[in-house]
Design a protein around this nucleic acid. Structure first.
Lengths: 344, 344
DNA sequence: CTGAAAGCGCTTACAG
DNA sequence: CTGAAAGCGCTTACAG
């Protein structure tokens, strides 16, 4: 509603030149006399000129904006990193004076519609998609629209697009190896529904490590549950009720692990002594758990910043396949991993 | 970069009418024959028409977008709620087909500049500003630009604009009252720098409750520290080192309270028995603390949704003073509040 | 080096 | 009820 008070026209009149000249001076064209350029720049600054964004976009056809697609799986756990990510992303696009939009939808279908509208109406010139499903329709959509995008995470086949991910398979392999070193042989996995690739990756890592360490894969030791502390608590209770319960549990996230700790404590057992637990994420709050949670910590690379830089590079014409960034998580030992003790 | 493939022109040609007619049909003008409207709507749907956003904005002058200004104080604690808030805000604006932008800046000066650009270039038609300082320059800016805005929180003088806030003074009054009921007389406050109004409000509530309960205000019992768990730990150590330490501590946030618990445990004391702690926020993770954290929980009203609705109402011409929403927090007892025991 | 003018894709009075 | 046309505020070949 704020009426555009000073536009190119005002500026031009003020300086006794045409709007074309003002525009070229402002946009750094080379065929403008230094004197004119300076006069224009000064006047623009003094009068507080702000180019009308819509007009420029209509004229140039470039959106000067990208969107972040909020993860659908919005349980408590997903929240902490959203703020961080947005901050980094914002920084990356701000360097160029571009805008950052956030897109969100309740149902998958709404989301596709929303994204289609966003890119086809010319609102955004690129997208970052987070937490993809195994065969994510959003990725197919962006492909068909030929819209630049980068994925935070990976799908089953991730050869042909840009992505940034942390190696979940490797992380769970490491976690299991660590527990084996501590003497554990009965190691369980508490995971989330496998439609999300990250859930599958982490399970794969667990299984591979079991096999490589010559451990038998006990079917009941794989519990798929809700991606939350409550889910973790439920699943852990099932594990503890087994005739032969595990002596260690790797959890798909710190939040799930927090639930596992609660279940263990509720039985009068001590996590880290009677049964080991390792989480994933490296959340700061894990440090305040009871006892402090051992976890596979994600590298503190600023994922948002990196995703933004990648997206801009692709928009500039870079080959998406040149931007595939796989980070490793590392073991952060706190107090919930301990040596196996042949008590019972 | 995706060329606008089907525009009004394509549609018009396809239907043998003019673009004006198509536009009017699409926008629900009343002076269009039902038959034409249907034909147009169908064709638009079939051809997958998406109006060019920039063109429409240039033509109508309305931005069809609002921005959320990320809080500057971006320590770990601020993150959890950002995701939630954005989701609610997104829902509110999506109902109208508007976009949600996020703005963020490192320095206060950058931020003002950024916001000025955002509104004066016509990118957004309204703003939600969170966590205001006592006399927030962003609010002054929006006023001078006559740009609609709603504040998440309040400043010292909040009579003339729209806001949504939780009553921090009341919450800390309640917390202190509760501790007094439990027999505590030496109650400390761990807070954050007072440039932020919420920090001042909560301190005010603490002080008012002290006075009303006839308790002496001990200057050393007010500790201003960094807004984080580390800050809470530091401040609590100072309190415990006092000749006459407090028997209870109210903390400005759950994250700060988590730090307080760590400091207490480190001395072999038991929170909730030897010394009581009450946090603020009602974060789920507090439940997994050692022991589970008693806290003043914020109401589960969807703040983002509410902020969005308020902003849109104001943009529609509503009087900002009609949209001032003060919610109350409530005491959520877990395990860190206990009766005072005259031991020492 | 600068001016004059067309064009980006919509919306919306104004005729008829 | 529909058409013809101006206009939103920029950018950018094209002349000169």
């Amino acid at each position: 509603m704020v009426k555009q008070t000073v536009g190119l026209k005002t500026l031009a009149a003020h300086l006794n030149v045409t709007v074309g000249t003002v525009s070229r001076a402002l946009n750094g064209y080379s065929d403008i006399s230094e004197a004119t350029r300076l006069r224009v720049l000064r006047a623009a600054d003094e009068l507080g000129y702000r180019p009308n964004h819509a007009a420029r976009r209509l004229s140039t056809g470039v959106a000067e904006a990208v969107a972040y697609v909020m993860p659908q799986y919005s349980s408590s756990i997903s929240q902490p990193f959203v703020g961080q990510l947005l901050k980094g992303l914002g920084e990356a696009v701000a360097k160029r004076g571009w805008d950052l939009l956030v897109a969100h939808a309740d149902s998958a279908k709404d989301e596709l519609n929303h994204l289609d509208r966003l890119v086809r109406s010319g609102r955004v010139g690129g997208l970052v998609i987070s937490r993809p499903a195994k065969n994510d329709p959003r990725i197919r959509l962006m492909r068909s629209l030929k819209c630049p995008f980068v994925v935070h995470g990976r799908t089953a086949d991730c050869r042909d697009y840009a992505w940034y991910d942390v190696d979940g398979a490797d992380a769970f392999h490491t976690a299991v190896d660590h527990l084996v070193t501590l003497g554990h042989g009965r190691i369980a996995f508490v995971g989330a529904p496998l439609q999300y690739q990250f859930a599958q990756d982490r399970l794969n890592g667990y299984r591979a490590a079991l096999e490589q360490n010559g451990l038998r894969a006990v079917p009941e030791f794989v519990q798929i549950t809700e991606f939350s502390d409550d889910g973790g608590e439920l699943a852990t209770n099932v594990l503890l009720d087994l005739d032969q319960p595990p002596s260690a549990i790797v959890c798909i996230s710190d939040m799930v692990a927090l639930g596992a700790l609660a279940a263990i404590r509720a039985r009068g057992l001590t996590p880290g002594r009677d049964i080991s637990v390792i989480g994933y994420d490296g959340l700061k709050v894990g440090q305040h758990a009871n006892p402090p949670l051992t976890t596979m910590a994600q590298p503190q690379v600023h994922a948002g910043r990196r995703l933004g830089d990648i997206l801009l590079a692709i928009i500039d014409g870079g080959d998406p396949r040149d931007y595939q960034d796989l980070q490793k998580a590392h073991l952060l030992r706190r107090k919930t991993d301990g040596a196996f003790e042949q008590t019972t």
